[in-house]
Amino acid sequence: MEEKFEPKIIAFLCKWCSSAGSDLAGVSRMKYPPNVVPITVMCSGSISPNYILSAFKDGADGVLVSGCHPGDCHYIKGNYYARRRITLVKELLEFIGIEPERFQMSWVSAAEGAKYTEIIKDFVKELEPLGPQNKLRSNL
């Protein structure tokens, strides 16, 4: 029997909102697929494009960047800077032929445990038909 493809998602979550949101999903015992490896960072504005590219290089099938809603960033402006930078990363990845579904960004507040579970569910569903991400995976 062929094994079902289980996409691996790396999620960069800001500490103050999105990570707290994912925690809330956990403590509220909401169910979502176990395909995601969350990495807490201080702010979405601290996510360097290098993080995203290395996640893909180390074999992520999808990468999620998530921060506080505009206006809610703990550091006031971090997510606005992130929005610009991530736009550029997203456009560039699509330009070189990476499936747009593989890289996503979201706003998740500390109260939005339910939204977080939905995002992960949808993400997994979108990644399944694409199969493993091998384009940027390390050849070394």
Binding site: P49, N50, L53, S54, K57, L88, V89, L92, L93, I96, K135, L136, R137, S138, N139, L140
Partner: peptide, 13 residues
């Protein structure tokens, strides 16, 4: 391949 892509994507960004 993977390292060339890294280099060029980072440089473009």
């Amino acid at each position: 391949s993977s390292e060339n892509f890294s280099y060029h994507l980072i440089r473009a960004l």
